[in-house]
């Protein structure tokens, strides 16, 4: 402990200290959000509201004599449009939270003037970002489970139908590419700064292409390929297929899961690379902390 690592002050890079950095950031974020209980409750009800809007439309059409369930089955493979919408809205909430929480963390640190200070600490940046994204993962996954259960109760959906284990696997693995996407959002915020509306818009782009309210198979040719290049599309369809048996893109769950694995291996690395490149460029020019 006598000599410090060059350039790192008294910080000594060991697995224990590395985990300490990760855990401290994670803990700090969790403590901060625990002070905003209203936001947490709101977060749980948001996907339910999103699901409610098209469900209500479907219900009213059905009560008017339109064979809504039959029509929905023809296009999606299931007559249970309520469950279909609820799963879509809950997975969208996961995507939205992951991208927003990481992106907004960068912005918040900029606004409060602490981004540069965080950056000059001798801790590895990927550990700091890892802590933030780990926090986002915990929050998003918890929100998904609770929202889905409450939504199921409200809309009369059986939450325990289908193969739950495979559905959980799709969510868990599907969250990893989101990690990478959230890095890219973080990079975008570093560059554009006041990017709230841009992030909002990009979230709706994701919502559109991941098929929150409809199966992506109804999209015209080119748009369908664009949709399939988004990892969240695979996650959403994987969860729906395992719970509602709407059919996997490649017929078997393990092939779809393998595709998500590929995304999970490539997208986080790509995202981190984009983030670090943006950061490097900024450091060479105006600096990181500029509001």
């Amino acid at each position: 402990m006598g000599t410090a690592i060059a350039g790192l002050g008294l910080y000594k890079k060991t697995p224990r200290t590395s985990f300490g950095v990760f855990a401290s950031v994670l803990k700090a974020r969790l403590i901060i959000i625990s002070r905003y209980k209203g936001s947490l409750i709101m977060e749980l009800f948001m996907p339910i509201v999103f699901a409610a809007l098209p469900i209500m439309l479907g219900v009213s059409l059905a009560s008017g004599g339109t064979p809504v369930a039959e029509n929905w089955k023809i296009s999606s493979g299931t007559a249970d449009f309520r469950a279909f919408m609820l799963i879509g809205a809950c997975t969208f909430s996961v995507v939205s939270l992951m991208t927003w929480l990481v992106g907004f963390w960068v912005r918040r640190e900029m606004v409060t003037g602490t981004l540069e200070s965080v950056w000059v600490t001798p801790a590895k940046k990927y550990l700091v970002i890892g802590g933030v994204t780990g926090y986002a993962l915990i929050r998003a996954f918890t929100a998904f489970i609770i929202s889905f259960l409450i939504g199921s109760l409200i809309f009369g959906v059986n939450p325990f139908q289908g193969n739950i284990l495979i559905a959980v696997l799709f969510i868990m693995i599907g969250l990893l590419p989101l990690w990478g996407i959230s890095f890219m959002f973080g990079a975008l915020i570093l560059k554009v700064k006041e990017a709230n509306s841009l992030i909002n818009m990009l979230q709706w782009v994701l919502a559109f292409f991941m098929g929150v309210y409809f199966p992506v198979t109804v999209l015209p040719g080119f748009l369908r390929y664009v949709a399939l290049s988004f990892p969240p599309t695979w996650m959403t369809n994987g969860v729906r297929a395992s719970l509602l048996e709407v059919g996997y893109f490649f017929e078997h769950w393990y092939i779809d899961l393998a595709i998500i694995f590929v995304f999970a291996a490539v997208v986080p690395l790509l995202g981190y690379m984009v983030f670090m490149r943006t950061e490097k460029r900024l450091k060479k020019n105006q600096g990181m902390g500029l509001y």
Partner: peptide, 16 residues
């Protein structure tokens, strides 16, 4: 995008 999402859902509800 929001309008588009609702429209797709409505089209499926009504059927081909």
């Amino acid at each position: 995008l929001i309008v588009g999402m609702f429209m797709f859902a409505a089209i499926i509800f009504i059927g081909e």
